[in-house]
Amino acid sequence: MGETMAFLSEHVSLVMCAAFFGGVVSFYSRRPRLACGFMLVGMFSNLWLFISRYTAALPFMPLHIGLIGISLLLACVQVLFRRQEKSLLLPLLLLLLALCNLLYPKDFYLPFIRSQSLFAHTFLLCGIGAKALLILAAVSAADILLRGEAVVLSAASRLVSFGYFLLILSMFSGEIWSYLGWGTPVVWHDAAITTVIALWFYWSCFLHLHYIRSWSTRWQGAFLATGGVLTLLVSVLPDLGPYQGVL
């Protein structure tokens, strides 16, 4: 069973990567319908990967699934809400995530038994949702910056607000889990906690910057885009396994 799943997982990862590549090429050659078809295939492959890995690990929290989760949510947004968008940024990002997943396609670590807690799953899922929303906000901001438009970034800010809320939920459920399992709400030896707190401060900073009068749209966009890169980095890097050293 395990070997079959691993075999399938590798092949579906390949299909996903090819589909997102097809999507990017079709977008570039102005064929929105074809692009949408490719993206749909990519999204369903991604969904299969996510569900199969998640259910295989149950009742434990699966490890190294963040990349696939974020990619799934971004693919859903692309297919459902950004079909008409001409920007190539999100499809390119999806392709990058699919390539990273292809580099390290299997969940090599066995889950640990303390992760069979509802709070562990909330920590993971809210974290995935938060990071996807924050990356999406950054993509929207980068799109606008690249087009040279001065749109008040209210849509992106709203995404940040909801992403921030999910990040808080993820962080606090992680703390409750940590308390119930290890006896302390914050463990400083876990890189995942350190990076989540770093993200929390970064996006808290963004929310505070709104109250500074000299905070221009251009700066807002740049800050959002940088935040996106940071979020992407802390989400993707730990999931690259032996390849993180290369990066």
Partner: peptide, 21 residues
């Protein structure tokens, strides 16, 4: 060392796929 990214106790358990890869 091919398990450089694996962290934990001595004689740690990993998945069979990783070992074979």
């Amino acid at each position: 060392y091919l398990f450089e990214d694996v962290y934990g106790t001595s004689c740690i358990e990993i998945s069979m796929e990783r070992f074979l890869t």
